[in-house]
Amino acid sequence: MEISRAVLTAAVVFAISGCATSPNGAEAPGPQNTQACVAASEADIASLFDRWNSSLQTGNPRAVAANYAENSVLLATLSNKPRTTREEQIDYFEHFLANKPSGKINSRTIKIDCNTAIDIGLYTFTLGKTGQEAKARYTFTYKWDGKQWLITTQHSSFMPEKE
C-alpha cells in the first residue's frame, strides 16, 4: 500500500512535535507521542504578553523570569548578551526593571501549532523612570509545559528606522 507524501509528512511532523494528536484532533502515529495538543486561541496567546507585562510591573526580576521555560533564550533589546540561564535572565531584568518599563502592543501576528505558539510584532515601551518611549520589534515563542504556557525564546530589537 502506497502512503501519500502529505500523509507521511504529517506523520513526521507530529512525531517530531511529540504530540499525540494534531490540532484538528487526528491521532498521530508513533510510540513516543504521549502528550495531547492543548487547545489555545489567539486571545489565549495574546494574554501571555499581558501576563509578562504585568510581571514587569511588580518590579521583581524573579517574577518576570518565572514566565520563561528552562533552557529558554532571551535576546533583549538593551543587552548584547544572549541570556540562556535563569540567573542571566534575572540579572537582565534587575537592570531593566529599574527603568519602570511598561509595554504596549502596536501590531501583532500570532501563529499556533501543537503545544507551541509564536507572537510576533511591534511594541512600544514607556520607561516610567524617564517618560521616554522605545519602539521595538519582538518575537515571543511559547511552549505548553503540561501546566502552563512558558516563553522559550524572546527576541526584541529597536526599530531600525526613525518615523
Rank of each mutant, 00 (worst) to 15 (best):
L74A: 00
I45V: 11
R51F: 04
I45N: 01
I45S: 00
T85Q: 01
E70C: 02
W52Y: 14
A46Y: 07
A76N: 12
N53C: 10
E87H: 05
T58F: 11
N53W: 09
A63F: 05
V73W: 05
T77V: 09
Y68M: 04
T85E: 05
T85P: 02
N60G: 09
I45M: 11
P61K: 01
L48E: 07
D44I: 13
T77Y: 02
L56P: 01
E88K: 07
E70L: 11
L78C: 06
L74M: 07
V64Y: 00
W52P: 00
D50N: 13
G59C: 10
T77W: 02
T77D: 12
E88R: 02
E87A: 15
E87N: 10
S54N: 15
E88D: 15
R86P: 03
L75H: 04
S72K: 03
L78R: 14
S79E: 04
Q57W: 08
A66E: 12
T77E: 13
K81M: 15
T58K: 00
Y68D: 01
E87F: 02
L78N: 14
N71Y: 06
I45F: 06
S47G: 15
K81V: 12
P82L: 10
R51Y: 01
P61T: 12
V64C: 03
L78P: 00
A69M: 11
D44Q: 09
T58I: 10
I45Q: 00
L56F: 10
N80Q: 11
S72Q: 04
A76K: 09
T84K: 13
A65Y: 01
V64G: 02
N71K: 14
G59I: 04
A65T: 00
P82K: 11
A63G: 09
Q57V: 11
S79N: 15
P61I: 09
W52Q: 09
E87I: 04
N71S: 14
Y68E: 03
L78F: 14
P82E: 08
N67F: 02
P61H: 05
L75I: 10
D50P: 03
N60K: 10
